[in-house]
């Protein structure tokens, strides 16, 4: 499906957000699903978690980590991009009984933004705990949008320049939230630490270098407790107990 860039701008140091629109797209993404975008001049598509969507548009939040994302960050409104939208299996909000905590780090906040809205709309209590290196890395406007969707947002920074000093798990300890389920997306060590610190059930969104994005090439298969699973198609969201940490 061809989308047109409608806005693209910096949200924090090294973090950008882009809104893409297409009249053929109906805002059907679930939190945790991704858009697979073909960038001109690159052979393989790049996966981006869909951070929000509506009738005719979707939003991605991304960090500039390589040549492709650097070029993406410079794309002007009006640029047309070939996008495969709503790929993979997203988070399951039904797993939460009453209250959920979302743990995010870096670009991992992206799918949690959409998830927070879904959970809040379903009447669940939502607390999002986001970890950053420094205060300048926090996309404040995005934090405000997540708050206005009905979630409480807590911050942890490594240098202590905002929120709790340390990891998301330190912020959890400091605030002592009560919840019955959790969701996480971000660096593997962060998700692993959350798994260790929290006893109740949860789901994690995994990342992998992908080939097809649609499940046909087996380029992103990880070994799980249930056998080999494709991150792009069976995931990217997996139950915590399925991941072999």
């Amino acid at each position: 499906m061809i989308f047109t860039v409608t806005s693209n701008g910096q949200a924090a140091s090294g973090t950008f957000r882009m809104v893409l629109s297409s009249p053929e797209y109906h805002g059907s993404a679930r939190g945790g699903q991704f858009a697979y975008i073909l960038l001109p001049g690159y052979y393989l598509r790049r996966p981006f978690a869909i951070s929000d969507c509506g009738e005719g548009w979707l939003e991605i939040i991304y960090c500039t980590v390589g040549n492709g994302t650097r070029e993406l960050s410079g794309m002007a409104p009006g640029t047309r991009l070939d996008v495969l939208a709503d790929l993979g299996h997203g988070f399951d909000i039904r797993a939460t009984k009453d209250a959920a905590v979302l743990f995010g780090g870096g670009a991992g906040i992206a799918p949690l933004k959409l998830l927070a809205r879904e959970l809040a709309a379903a009447g669940k209590k939502v607390t999002a705990i986001f970890g950053f290196n420094r205060a300048v890395d926090i996309p404040e406007a995005i934090m405000d949008e997540i708050r206005s969707s009905g979630a409480e947002v807590l911050i942890a920074t490594m240098d202590g320049s905002a929120g709790t000093k340390g990891f998301v798990t330190d912020a959890l300890r400091e605030h002592g939230c009560s919840f019955d389920y959790w969701y996480s997306c971000g660096p593997l060590p962060m998700m692993k630490a959350v798994c260790k610190a929290v006893d109740c059930g949860g789901q994690v969104s995994m990342e992998a270098r992908m080939g097809c994005g649609t499940g046909i090439c087996y380029g992103c298969s990880i070994m799980t407790a249930k056998g080999a699973r494709r991150v792009c198609k069976d995931g990217p969201v997996f139950d915590r107990e399925d991941i072999i940490w």
Binding site: A208, G211, C217, Y218, C220, S221, I222
Partner: peptide
Amino acid sequence: RYGNPLPRIAETPSGLLNCVGLQ
């Protein structure tokens, strides 16, 4: 066969490398 560990995919100019390893 599970095949090789990740990463199994790398991009190249006008193509890709894979080492899926016969999963």
